[in-house]
Design a protein around this nucleic acid. Structure first.
Lengths: 375, 375
DNA sequence: ACATAGAGGTGAACTAGTTTACCATGTTAG
DNA sequence: CTAACATGGTAAACTAGTTCACCTCTATGT
C-alpha cells in the first residue's frame, strides 16, 4: 500500500489515484450534476413558502415560530420525507453529538466482557440522550500521529470516554490540558487530576478480605492486575494492610502480577503455590485471572474450594456458569457506563465541576470459597 | 424531560430551553464572536500566499500541484498546526468515512465475546483503512423511528455492518432496497439476498457429528440457538441428517432451543436429559449454551466428559479456561470482522459485485469430549 | 512564426445547515 | 395620538471544506 507518504494529514486512503482525477462518474457533490440531489432545507422553505431560517427554527423547536407556521412547515417536511443533514448541522452548530470510547490496544479488547459491559452502558445512555458513539483503539501509531487530539481538532467528536488506561499512558494529559471534554471510566489518575467515575475498589477488596478471614483463611495469595493502575493498586493496598492485621507480612512471594489475563493468572497461581504450598485462598484482581488460576489448580488435582478458595473481582456475566461458580466482587460496570455518559454529556454542556463519582460494590458469594481446611 | 414533543425529527435534546434562546455565551459559531476561531483553510491560503483551492489540493495530494507549492503550503500547515475540519470535508465530499455496526437490542450485547470478536476485527481493519466505526443498537424504537435509514439519509455513515440479526428482522430489507451499502456479518439471508460474509457452519457441524460418531456416540442431543437464523438452522440440518444416517430419527425431544444463553442452555440440558437419560453427548450451537449445559450436568453429579460429552460452537476466548476445557468449533470471528470491513469498504467505493464469502471453520479438541461410555 | 496543448493555479459556486441583524406589523402605555 | 415595545418572520452572513470552469504561462510541433 501507499504507506510511503510523509504528510500526516490525510488518512491513508485519501490520496486520489495517480493521473487525472477519476472519481466515480455518479458524482453528486458540489457543482456536479443535479440528478440525485437530496432534498435540502432550501427546497423545504420554497415548498412551504417560508424562509430557510424559518424552517431551521421549526426544526429546532424555536418558540419564536407560531403554531400555524410550524404546522405548515412540518406538513411539507413529512410529505417529502425530509431529514436534515447532520453534517451541515454539526458544521454550523457547536456540537457534533458524537462521543468516542478510547481504549487500549489490547487485541480483542471489545471482546472482553469487562470492556463490553462498560461500553454497553455508555452506548445505551448516549443513544437515549441523542448521541452517537464511536470506538477508537489507542494503538501506538494512533497516539504518535496525535489522532487522539485530531478527534477534537477535526471535529469528529464532542468528548471521549477513556477506559482501560493507567499511569503508563501520559497522552491522556494531552487531551486534558487542552480542556477537551474527557472522562476516565473505572480508572483514577490522582496525579493528573482527570475527571472520572469509578467503582469502589477499596470497599470491594475490604469485603473480600473480611470474608476470607471469617472463613478462617490466613494464608491468602494475591494475584493483582497491574501496579500501573490506581484501582489495581488499591486492591494491593487493602490486601497488604489486612494481611498485616492478620499477622502475615505479605512480601513479593505472596503477590504476583497476573496481567488481567487467564493465562497469566494460571501462571501466577502456579508460582504462588510453589512458594506457599500451604496456601488456602487466592484473591484475584479480576475474574479472568481468577478463572485462570482455578483452571490451573483443578488441573493440579487440587479441589476448589476444598483445598484452595478463590475469589475474583468484577462479576463478569459467565462467572456464574463455571464450575465451581466463582465468588467475586460485583462491580456495576453497565451502570458505571451509564453514569459516565451522563457525566460526560453534562461536561460538554458546560457544567465545569470536577467529576469524581464512586459506585458501590458488593461481594457475591458462590461456590469457589469455603472454610479454610486448616491454618 | 421534554418528551411531549410530536415532531420526530430532532433528537430528544435538540429542543432549546423555553424562553429566548440562551445558549452558552462562549458561542464561537456562525456570525458570533471571532475570538476562539479555529484556523481554517482560508487562513492557511492567506499565510501561504496561494488560493484556497490550492490548499485543498495539497491536502488531498492532488498531482496537479508542483512540489515547490506543495512544500510551501505544507510548511504553513505544520507551522500553525492546522487540521482540516472533517465535517466540512464530509459535507462537500462524497463520503463521511464513518461506518456503523448495527446489532440487536440484547442488553449487554457488546459484552458478549461473540459480538466483541466481530467488532474487534471490524474496528481494527476499518481504522487501518481510515474509517471510523460507530455502534448502534437496533432497539424497537430505533427501528420505529427509522433511525436505521436516517443513518444514511442524514449522512451519519457510508455503510453498515449488521450482526446478530435473523429472519425476524425485516427492517434490514429497508436498507437493502434503498441500495445503501450494507453487509450482514455471520448471518445469511437467502430470501432477501443481502450481501454477507459468514463462517462455514455446515462444515463445522459436520466435523462435530463425525467426531462424536467416531467416539462411539449415537444418542446425541442438540441445543440449537434459534430457528430464525439461517446459520443456526444449518447446524440443525446437519445434525438431523447425520442422526438419520446413524439410525436415529431425531424428533423434537432430541433438539431444544437454548436461545444462545447460558441460562437457557442449562435448562435445555435439563429437558434433554429428562427425555433421554441415556444420552451420551450434547452438541450446542454456541459456547455459552454449551457452558450452561455443562454447568447443569456437573451440578447434577454427572461427569463431563465421563458420563456426557459436550461440544460447543464459536471457540470464544475463555472456553479454554473452564474445567473441563470445552471442545468446540473454532469460528474465525475476528478475521470475519476484518473481511467484512474490507468488503463493505469496497462496496462503498462502488464495486457492486455480490458479496457472499465463506471462511473455514475447524474443530478444536479439548477436554469435554471422550469415548461414549456405552451405547 | 504561430497555433495549440498542457501544466499549474485561481475565483466562484457549490455542499446544507444555523444565527444574527433587521424589518414590518400589532399592541400597549402615557 | 403617538412613542415604545413585543411578535413573527426574513435576507444575508456565517460554519469549512471541494470542485469546476477558466486563465495565464510555457513548451512543443509544423
Amino acid at each position: 500500500m501507499a504507506e510511503s507518504r510523509t504528510n500526516p494529514l490525510p488518512s491513508p486512503e485519501d490520496a486520489p489515484p495517480p493521473g487525472p482525477d477519476r472519481r466515480p462518474a455518479a458524482r453528486r457533490g458540489a457543482g456536479g450534476g443535479k440528478k440525485t440531489k437530496r432534498t435540502s432545507i432550501r427546497q423545504i422553505a420554497q415548498l412551504a413558502g417560508v424562509s430557510v431560517a424559518t424552517v431551521s427554527m421549526v426544526l429546532n423547536n424555536n418558540p419564536k415560530i407560531t403554531e400555524a407556521t410550524r404546522r405548515k412547515v412540518n406538513r411539507v417536511i413529512s410529505d417529502v420525507g425530509y431529514r436534515p443533514n447532520r453534517l451541515a448541522q454539526s458544521l454550523s452548530g457547536q456540537y457534533t453529538r458524537v462521543l468516542a470510547v478510547l481504549m487500549p490496544t489490547l487485541r480483542h479488547a471489545v471482546a472482553d466482557p469487562y470492556f463490553g459491559e462498560l461500553i454497553s452502558g455508555i452506548c445505551d445512555r448516549a443513544a437515549k440522550r441523542g448521541h452517537k458513539v464511536m470506538l477508537e483503539h489507542a494503538k501506538p501509531e494512533f497516539i504518535k500521529q496525535n489522532q487522539h487530539l485530531e478527534l477534537f481538532e477535526r471535529r469528529f467528536v464532542d468528548g471521549v470516554f477513556c477506559i482501560g488506561f493507567n499511569d503508563k499512558h501520559p497522552f491522556l494529559t494531552d487531551i486534558h490540558q487542552r480542556d477537551f471534554p474527557m472522562i476516565a471510566v473505572n480508572n483514577v489518575f490522582p496525579d493528573w487530576g482527570l475527571d472520572h467515575v469509578v467503582c469502589d475498589y477499596r470497599s470491594g477488596a475490604e469485603q473480600v478480605m473480611t470474608y476470607l478471614r471469617q472463613l478462617g483463611h490466613r494464608k491468602i495469595g494475591l494475584i493483582y492486575g497491574s501496579l500501573d493502575a490506581y484501582t489495581a493498586r488499591t486492591i494491593v493496598d487493602v490486601y497488604r494492610q489486612r494481611m498485616h492485621d492478620a499477622g502475615v507480612e505479605a512480601d513479593d512471594t505472596w503477590m504476583i502480577d497476573g496481567h488481567f489475563t487467564e493465562e497469566h493468572g494460571a501462571d501466577a497461581a502456579r508460582r504462588l503455590l510453589e512458594h506457599h504450598p500451604d496456601l488456602t485462598a487466592i484473591f484475584a484482581g479480576n475474574d479472568k485471572m481468577a478463572l485462570g488460576s482455578m483452571h490451573y489448580i483443578t488441573h493440579q488435582g487440587k479441589a476448589v474450594p476444598g483445598d484452595v478458595s478463590i475469589v475474583g473481582f468484577d462479576d463478569i456475566p459467565h462467572t456464574a456458569f463455571v464450575t465451581p461458580a466463582l465468588t467475586t466482587v460485583h462491580t456495576p460496570l453497565y451502570e458505571l457506563g451509564v453514569l459516565a455518559a451522563d457525566r460526560l454529556i453534562e461536561r460538554i454542556r458546560g457544567k465545569a465541576r470536577k467529576i469524581a463519582d464512586v459506585l458501590p460494590t458488593h461481594l457475591v458469594l458462590r461456590e469457589s470459597t469455603s472454610l479454610a481446611a486448616r491454618d
